Amino acid sequence: MTTDSVQQDMFTVLHGQPAPIVTRWSYVASDPFAITVAVRTRKDRWVEWLVARDLVIASLAGPVGEGDIRMRPCEVHGYDVVEIEIRSAEGRAVLEVDRDMLRHFVDASLELVAFGDESRHMDLDVEIDKIVGSCTE
């Protein structure tokens, strides 16, 4: 059986909070440049962000990002994590996710679509139709 997506739930620490929260990381081969990070805020309620896959991959090795999402590997209380800072007009959140678990997720996404092969997995005509369709509505 083959699949075109990867999904992994991870316990994530919201910086400064004692209890972890659940995040869901998703990757779909048909949207090869993006990773969806969903944060569970309440039972059955999720807040989602789209993050560039190359940003997530690079965050395993060093600090990356400008603007709304910044990521960097670091050690927190003896744990090897990737710190994810998300900013918006409403505020700022800092998440800490286990670096090995994130690496496992990234590796699974790379098995689906190799780094550099993303454009082969996109149907540009469909993407253009989405853009043009949303402009005429």
Score class of each variant (00 low, 15 high):
Thr2Leu: 03
Asp4Trp: 00
Asp4Cys: 05
Val6Tyr: 02
Val6Pro: 01
Gln8Ile: 12
Asp9Ala: 14
Met10Cys: 15
Met10Gln: 14
Phe11Arg: 12
His15Asn: 08
His15Val: 08
His15Gly: 08
Pro18Ala: 09
Ala19Asn: 07
Ala19Met: 07
Val22Glu: 15
Val22Trp: 14
Arg24Lys: 12
Ser26Asn: 13
Ser26His: 08
Ser26Arg: 15
Tyr27Ile: 01
Val28Ile: 10
Val28Tyr: 07
Val28His: 10
Ala29Pro: 02
Ser30Phe: 07
Phe33Ile: 09
Phe33Cys: 08
Phe33Gln: 11
Ile35Asn: 00
Thr36Lys: 09
Val37Ile: 12
Val37Tyr: 00
Val37Cys: 03
Ala38Arg: 10
Ala38Asn: 04
Val39Met: 15
Val39Ala: 15
Thr41Phe: 10
Arg42Val: 06
Arg45Gln: 11
Arg45Thr: 13
Arg45Asn: 10
Trp46Gly: 04
Trp46Pro: 04
Val47Lys: 09
Glu48Gln: 13
Trp49Cys: 02
Trp49Met: 04
Trp49Ile: 03
Leu50Trp: 07
Val51Thr: 00
Val51Trp: 00
Ala52Glu: 04
Ala52Asn: 01
Ala52Trp: 00
Arg53Gln: 04
Asp54Val: 05
Val56Ile: 07
Ile57Val: 11
Ile57Lys: 07
Ile57Gly: 00
Ala58Lys: 13
Ser59Phe: 02
Leu60Tyr: 06
Ala61Gly: 12
Ala61Asn: 11
Gly62Ala: 10
Gly62Thr: 01
Gly62Arg: 15
Pro63Tyr: 01
Val64Arg: 07
Gly65Met: 00
Gly65Asp: 02
Glu66Met: 04
Glu66Val: 09
Ile69Phe: 01
Arg70Phe: 02
Arg70Glu: 09
Met71Lys: 01
Pro73Thr: 01
Cys74Lys: 06
Val76Phe: 08
Val76Met: 09
Gly78Val: 13
Gly78Arg: 11
Gly78Pro: 10
Gly78Ile: 14
Val81Trp: 01
Glu83Met: 09
Ile84Glu: 03
Glu85Pro: 00
Glu85Asn: 06
Ile86His: 03
Ile86Asp: 02
Arg87Thr: 14
Gly91Gln: 05
Arg92Ala: 05
Ala93Ile: 15
Ala93Glu: 05
Ala93Tyr: 05
Val94Pro: 03
Leu95Ala: 03
Leu95His: 02
Leu95Gly: 01
Arg99Gln: 12
Arg99Gly: 08
Asp100Cys: 03
Asp100Arg: 13
Leu102Asn: 02
Arg103Phe: 02
His104Asp: 11
His104Gln: 09
Val106Phe: 02
Asp107Asn: 07
Asp107Val: 00
Ala108Thr: 02
Leu110Gln: 13
Glu111Leu: 11
Glu111Gln: 13
Leu112Glu: 01
Leu112His: 06
Ala114Ser: 15
Gly116Asp: 06
Gly116Trp: 06
Asp117Leu: 11
Glu118Ala: 15
Glu118Trp: 10
Arg120Lys: 15
Met122Glu: 14
Asp123Gly: 08
Leu124Val: 15
Ile128Tyr: 14
Asp129Phe: 11
Asp129Gly: 12
Asp129Pro: 08
Ile131Trp: 15
Ile131Glu: 10
Val132Leu: 10
Val132Arg: 10
Val132Ser: 09
Ser134Thr: 14
Ser134Cys: 05
Cys135His: 07
Thr136Ala: 03
